[in-house]
């Protein structure tokens, strides 16, 4: 058996590869559930249960919101060959910017706007720093953005434990509650802060058009596909990269504002703000194959994986470690299917 590259796989073959890997993942999960002592059928039903009732759907949507905003920006950045692994940190800085506007600027009808503005700017700055280091010194953005995540993480810890620690929160590590002007409206009783959702849909659409229909997007795609050609043509490579780092950072920043203004209403410990959205969104972007519009689909798919995992946790009081294996297996299956669909398998010796 050997693998040969298949440059142009047919749609049917791609579907088949995904089906095969999904079945494999389900089989392995069935073994896992059996070992844990629950019926695999019931476990699968629970995992998919968020799709069957409005409350469950809202849980999927709540998790899809940050994945959509960040994923659209990352799909855009990856297309241009800027491998931003630092969305988590950019999200956290966005949350810091939002919290500053909510807590320290005079409240009023403008508060939410200022929060998004400041959060987006800080996210853009954080992504822009990595882009600048790449342009100026040739530093790999994979490493710089990854390291910046830690800086952002401990900045938030410092703020909530030190200067911004709330007056009324006793031993807990968070700020005071934001004033009502800083709360995003939600859909009914759910946690779906719809303005952020709209922002995400708008971003995915806008970036798709920008990338595939405008002169700027044309130049960006040339740079992403063939940096040597971009140099040969004399494209302003440095400026384009700064732009891309800034945009993807800004969108992650907006997602951070959405989380604190829509759900928590305060700045708190980083692990509670984000649940790793900045990393899961990398997968959403990668599955979308560099098409921001497709993130509309992949963000909801991954939202379901996260929400289904939570449902399992509640229904069988499974520890989160087991649930993480469930999501992990699904994600691995998606990656495997993607890799397989790009190759032909030759069964002859």
């Amino acid at each position: 058996m050997r693998l040969e590259l298949d440059p142009a796989p047919s749609l049917g073959k791609v579907a088949l590869a995904y089906a095969a890997f999904l079945l494999l993942a389900l089989f392995l999960l069935a073994l896992l559930f059996l070992a844990y002592g629950v019926s695999p059928w019931r476990a699968f039903a629970v995992f998919l249960s968020p799709l069957t009732d409005p409350l469950g759907l809202s849980e999927v949507a709540r998790r899809a919101i940050p994945l959509l905003l960040i994923g659209a920006g990352l799909a855009f950045a990856f297309r241009v060959g800027f491998f931003n692994i630092g969305a988590e940190g950019q999200l956290l800085l966005g949350a810091v910017g939002g919290a500053y506007a909510a807590l320290f600027l005079p409240p009023g009808p403008w508060t939410l706007f200022l929060m998004f503005l400041l959060g987006g700017l800080l996210g853009a700055l954080w992504g822009g720093v990595a882009a600048w280091l790449k342009v100026r010194f040739g530093a790999s953005e994979i490493l710089t953005t990854l390291m910046q995540n830690y800086l952002a993480y401990y900045l938030v810890v410092y703020l909530v434990a030190g200067p911004w620690k709330g007056q009324l929160v006793f031993g807990f590590l968070y700020t005071d509650r934001f004033p009502p002007w800083a709360h995003l409206p939600r859909l009914g009783d759910t946690l779906v802060h719809w303005p952020t959702l709209l922002l995400g849909v708008g971003a995915a659409l806008a970036l798709q058009v920008l990338l595939f229909r405008t002169p700027l997007g044309f130049a960006l795609r040339v740079l992403g596909e063939n940096p040597a050609a971009a140099r040969y043509l004399g494209l302003p490579v440095g400026r384009l990269l700064l732009w891309v780092g800034g945009v993807s950072g800004a969108l992650a920043g907006l997602a951070g504002v959405g989380e604190v203004a829509g759900i928590h209403h305060r700045l708190l410990e980083p692990a509670q703000i984000s649940l790793g959205y900045g990393f899961t969104a990398i997968l959403a972007a990668w599955l979308a194959r560099g098409r921001p519009l497709w993130v509309l689909l992949t963000a909801f798919l991954l939202g379901l994986v996260l929400a289904g995992g939570d449902a399992l946790k509640l229904a069988f009081s499974m520890p989160f470690r087991v649930v993480d294996v469930v999501s992990g297996l699904f994600l691995l299956a998606l990656i495997g299917a993607e890799a397989l669909s790009r190759h032909r398998v030759i069964w002859r010796r």
Binding site: R221, V222, E225, N226, A228, A229, Y232
Partner: peptide, 14 residues
């Protein structure tokens, strides 16, 4: 300019 390497002068995915 016709570049030394053909691959420099074009973008394969476009």
């Amino acid at each position: 300019h016709i570049p030394e390497e053909r691959s420099t002068g074009v973008v394969g995915g476009m």
